[in-house]
């Protein structure tokens, strides 16, 4: 694997060129261009906020900021996986003719989305400091750490998905369904505290459900983004029958460490898997 990484480093200029090309091409023919990648999350969060505050009865000051803090990383996860699933297949004619490290194709898709995510985060901070008027927490310095491990996780999954999609084009459909379902299994529209107090569990199970839920590294990362970016908050849900209050839980550093370790592991396994199959790409009829 070290040899493969060294070869990848040798081709870094190609990687960077591809990243720029992806960024340039995406909004080339639209009037608003790059702003589309800000409009989509902002409009989504506005709709989610209205629905969950007015219809579902969530009583949380600045709910929209909490949704945005998890929704932006989720968008990064989702669009990067969808983009990269097609990345090798879309360039298969080139793959059949020219030698270059094949992993450049999915990795460029991931990095282009990372840049979009970084720009969206800038907008998030403007929103936070300008509109919500929330103070910046010192834990914000951990943001790059979360982004780093999330990127490793995404890269590992992208390598697996883009490779499988060359041989079985069903992959991209499975990924898109999987992402739709996963959206409900990560804390974006609700809070991890609500998982802790889930109705299905008797009190002694609470801890276990919370733990199993957060063994999904994506869920843990979303929870962590919220906790490092925004102050702890008491969630109130006004239901039809009763009013429920969920006190904020502290960050579970142990679970976060597990999520980071899993992300590294997925990257290593994904890269190894990709490397085993990447010389078969050109042989696909």
């Amino acid at each position: 694997m070290l040899d493969e990484l060294r070869e990848l480093y040798r081709y870094r200029e190609l990687l960077w060129t591809l990243v720029l090309r992806e960024l340039r091409v995406r909004y080339k023919n639209s009037y608003l261009g790059f702003f589309w990648s800000l409009i989509v999350p902002l409009v989504t969060v506005a709709v989610l906020t209205i629905v969950f505050k007015r219809v579902m009865g969530m009583v949380i000051p600045n709910y929209s900021a909490y949704v945005l803090a998890a929704f932006l990383p989720w968008m990064y996860f989702q669009t990067a996986l969808l983009d990269s699933s097609q990345s090798v297949l879309a360039q298969i004619q080139l793959v059949k003719k020219v030698y270059f490290p094949r992993e450049i194709l999915p990795l460029a898709a991931v990095l282009a989305n990372l840049i979009h995510f970084a720009l969206a985060l800038v907008v998030f901070f403007v929103y936070l400091l300008g509109y919500v008027n929330a103070p910046l927490l010192p834990s914000v310095i951990l943001l790059p750490v979360l982004v780093f491990f999330q990127t490793l996780l995404i890269a590992g999954l992208s390598l697996i998905i883009s490779c499988l999609n060359v041989f079985y084009e069903d992959t991209k459909y499975i990924v898109s369904i999987g992402l739709q379902l996963m959206f409900y299994l990560v804390p974006v529209i609700y809070f991890s505290e609500q998982v802790y107090h889930a109705q299905i569990a008797s009190p002694e199970w609470q801890r276990w459900i919370y733990l199993v839920y957060h063994l999904n590294p994506v869920a843990m990362l979303m929870t962590a983004y919220r906790k490092i970016l925004l102050p702890p908050i008491t969630v109130q849900q006004v239901g039809a029958v009763q009013k429920q209050t969920f006190a904020s839980l502290p960050m579970d550093w142990g679970l976060l460490a597990v999520a980071c370790a899993v992300s590294v592991l997925i990257f290593i396994l994904g890269y190894a898997f990709f490397n085993r199959r990447k010389w078969d790409f050109a042989e696909q009829p």
């Binding site: 200029e13 190609l14 060129t17 591809l18 090309r21 004619q93 080139l94 003719k97 020219v98 270059f100």
Partner: peptide, 24 residues
């Protein structure tokens, strides 16, 4: 390369020259 392989239709000739050159 065969006709058009490695070219992106939405990019200009110049942008494509850079991409193609680097890949080669």
């Amino acid at each position: 390369l065969q006709l058009g392989v490695g070219f992106h239709p939405d990019l200009t000739g110049l942008e494509n020259v850079y991409f193609n050159g680097i890949i080669l």
